[in-house]
Design a protein around this nucleic acid. Sequence first.
DNA 1: AAGTGTATCAACCGCTGTGCT
DNA 2: AAGCACAGCGGTTGATACACT
Length: 237
Amino acid sequence: MEGQYYGWGTGADGWRKGPWTPQEDQLLIEHVKLHGEGRWNSVSRLTGLKRSGKSSRLRWVNYLRPDLKRGKITPHEETIILELHARWGNRWSTIARSLPGRTDNEIKNYWRTHFKKSTKNVDKARARYLRLQQEHKQLQQQQQQQQQQLLLLESNIVKEETTSLTEEAIMVQEMQEIAFMCSNLPFMYQEEGLVGESTTSSEDRSSEEETCYDTWDNLWNLDDMEITLGEQALTFY
DNA sequence: AAGTGTATCAACCGCTGTGCT
DNA sequence: AAGCACAGCGGTTGATACACT
C-alpha cells in the first residue's frame, strides 16, 4: 500500500491527498524532529510538503509517531477496549489513552470490525459492566464502613472526612478499577499460552481452557446470546 | 483460476472546543 | 464579545488483502 500513487492527486484546495509516499513521510519526520509536534499548518510552508496541516497531523499521530505499537491488538488489549467502551462509549481518544502505543483510529477501526455488528452483545456487555461496577463500588463502600467502625472503636474519636475528587481523579480511579478487573480476565491465560487459538466447541477445551471460559463467563455471563463474547473474542485469534 | 464477499486500515471530512487577537 | 486559526475528535469512505465458493 505504501509508496504507491493511486491517483488521488491534488484537491481543488491545492493540497495533495491520498496515501503518503516515503519521501513525504521523511519530510514530516524531519520537520517534527526540528520543530516538535504541533504547528501543523506551518508544515507545508517549512518543508515544502503539499499536505494540509490536518493531513500532516493525522499522518504523524496515526502512523509516524515513534512510540506507536505495531501489530495486532492483543487479547488483553481487546479486553481493555471492551471494558472502556462499556464505560465511555465511542470516546476513542479517551480509550486510546489507556492503551499506550495505540491510536484512537486503530481502536475505532478494531471496534467497528469486531464488535459493530453485534450491538446486542455489546449492549448486554455494557449493562453487565455497569452492574459489576456498581457491585464493586458497593463492596468498596462496605469495606470502608467496616474500616471506619473499627477505627471508631479503637480511638473513640469521631472524625469526618470529606473528599473532593476532580473529574480527572475519578477517571484515573475508574481506570485503576477497570485495570484491576481486567487483570483477572481469562485472556491472561491465553497470553501465557494456556488457551488454543480458536476454540469453538466445549469438548475441545482443556481444563485450563475451561477455567478461562469460566472466568470469562463469570464476568460477562453472555450465555443467552447467539454468540458469546468470550467465544467471539477467542475465535478471532 | 476466476469471481465475489468480507476484513482491514489509512486517510478524508465535517464538526466542535480552545486559545489568541 | 466576536472572529479567526488551529488542534483534535468521531464518523465515513475507499483501496487493498485475504478468504471463500
